[in-house]
Design a protein around this nucleic acid. Structure first.
Length: 487
RNA sequence: GCGACGAUCGUCCAGUUUGGUCUAGGACAUCAGAUUGCCAAUCUGGUAACCCGGGUUCAAAUCCCGGUCGUCGCACCA
């Protein structure tokens, strides 16, 4: 497996991703750009997600605002729960989470709603000093992970969303109505979220501005086990870590053994599993890890993290949270808007519960890159073994040598195909060098125009992974790519 | 955020110890031309860097201070 460093260098060299604003000396950590190849890969990853989750399950997709008003986050709980009491040493400026530090030293649980003064009092009463240098602390401050923004000339308080899903909750009633929804009803969204991380690190793995692909499944809490489509996935094999033991079993067995609490959750974990299988990551290195009460987000009652073992350890790719009716209830209370709907299936009036699949796109992109990276020592080359439907470019069109009689034909092929597929034309340098360049960004096919082409109108197709070649007729190229570009 | 270490062409490295000979050198990559009948070939030529700001000095890539970023450790990570 490739190391984090190899992927970082490849990404920098070949335009998958690189630091934002890098020509300025005041550029900030935690912001990265996708270059041309990374952007293509990301788009194709999202398209696969749409195919395997959104379209498969008849979900609908929306695109909400990135900036939302203060009350949205009062309701969601982020104003209170997303902010931590922080203490700073007056001398060495060490910064600590106050509640955690107090608990570690004294076993006293400072309640989440405690004021700064109350925190200071506990510190004083227990005579707690900086663990690094022994000095006292400055008064407790609040650190909120949300970016606050001022709107309009009066700088009205608003926030960059720390997760994309709030738009889905806020819009739920209208969407359910206009789409004539039936429960379970799933709404999906792809977009950016923003978190003011204290110490962003490791490029795409911890960003301050990042992409999420979120799915919120609205369901009737009394109907979680009456899901006919469960049969589609009952034999899907899942790896589940319940905190102490690791189980590898089918969705059906997971339900029977109560490792997964209901069929609805099992169904969505399974189609998520099948999606990731198609990205080419090694499923033997993945697991659904059931979170303990301590690890869960404040809104979750049941939570599984979908994780992949990478060169930098286990990486959380998707948070799967059963949020109960927490969000709709909160938005209903704060906005005074009724959120109950009548479940057209059972004719019951319910405030739907929500099961969420919150997928980190950037981490997934990194995972796909690391999983497909391959050092071919035998042939002295580096290959990204990306699936054709994820590769930034589907094929390179290459004249064998740089001669007009071959180049003109190759250019014509390129012009013929580029509207339908991501193609790349290259005539500079030796043919071997051009093959190597394509392999390194994961291009699965190379089409070479040679002197035989002039005689019989055939070209060679070279396969990236095996380096094998076969001849096909020029006029069959289009159907060849149609057959080979989809999952 | 704290601490340690680091930052020179796209990449890797030389030069910093001992300030001047550095209008900063090499390799790989890249671009142009030549050559080339299938796997990083060859030849010629070119593009291209001292992280940012301040200070010391006759003189700074080199010494000092601050900032930013990176790696690692601690802390943080809904």
């Amino acid at each position: 497996m490739a190391s984090y460093d190899r992927i970082a260098k490849l990404s920098l060299d070949r335009g998958f991703y690189f630091p934002s604003s890098e020509i300025y000396s005041d550029s900030m950590a935690g912001f990265w750009e996708y270059g041309p190849n990374g952007n293509n890969l990301k788009n194709k990853f999202i398209e696969l997600w749409r195919r395997e989750l959104v379209r498969r399950d008849d979900m609908i997709e929306i695109d909400g605002s990135q900036i939302m008003s203060k009350n949205v986050f009062v309701a969601s709980g982020h104003i209170d729960n997303f902010s931590d009491p922080v203490i700073v040493c007056s001398k060495c400026k060490s910064t600590l989470r106050a509640d955690k530090f107090i608990f570690d030293k004294t076993r006293i649980n400072v309640p989440e709603g405690a004021s700064n003064n109350e925190v200071d009092e506990v510190l004083n009463q227990n005579n707690l000093k900086c663990p690094t240098c022994g000095s006292s602390f400055q008064p407790t401050e609040r650190f909120n992970m949300m970016f606050k923004v001022g709107i309009g000339p009066r700088n009205e308080e608003a926030y960059l969303r720390p997760e994309t899903c709030q738009a889905i909750f806020v819009d739920f009633k209208r969407i359910f109505k206009i789409m004539r929804g039936k429960l379970p009803f799933s709404i999906a969204q792809v977009g950016k979220s923003f978190r003011n991380e204290i110490a962003p690190r490791q490029s795409l793995l911890r960003l301050r501005e990042f992409y999420q692909a979120e799915i919120e499944v609205f369901c009737n809490p009394n109907e979680l086990d009456s899901l006919s489509k469960f049969d589609e996935i009952k034999d899907t094999i899942l790896t589940i870590n319940d905190g102490s033991e690791v189980f590898k079993l089918t969705a059906k067995e997971a339900i029977e053994n109560k490792i997964i609490p209901n069929k609805l959750i099992a169904y969505y974990l399974s189609i998520l599993n099948e999606f990731y299988e198609k990205t080419g990551i090694d499923m033997n290195q993945t697991r659904f890890r059931k979170l303990s009460d301590k690890e869960k987000a404040f809104y979750a009652t049941i939570a599984f993290d979908f994780e992949l073992k990478t060169s930098v350890g286990w990486l959380e790719l998707v948070a799967c949270n059963y949020r109960s009716n927490y969000d709709l209830d909160q938005h209903s209370k704060i906005s005074k808007e009724k959120m109950e709907i009548t479940d057209p299936v059972t004719n019951e009036k319910v405030l739907p519960h929500v099961f969420e699949l919150s997928l980190g796109i950037d981490r997934s992109i990194y995972s796909v890159l690391e999983s497909s990276f391959f050092d071919d020592h035998e042939n002295d080359r580096v290959i990204l073994k990306l699936k054709p439907y994820l590769a930034p470019i589907l094929a390179g069109i290459l004249p064998l040598v740089k001669k007009p009689e071959l180049g003109d034909i190759a250019k014509n092929i390129y012009h013929d195909l580029k509207k339908d597929f991501d193609m790349y034309y290259d005539e500079s340098g030796s043919i071997g060098r051009r093959y190597r360049r394509l392999e390194e960004i994961g291009v699965p096919f190379a089409i070479t125009v040679d002197y035989d082409t002039l005689e019989d109108k055939t070209v060679t197709v070279r396969y990236r992974d095996t380096m094998q070649q076969k001849r096909i007729k020029m006029k069959d190229l289009k159907s060849f790519f149609v057959e080979n570009k989809d999952p």
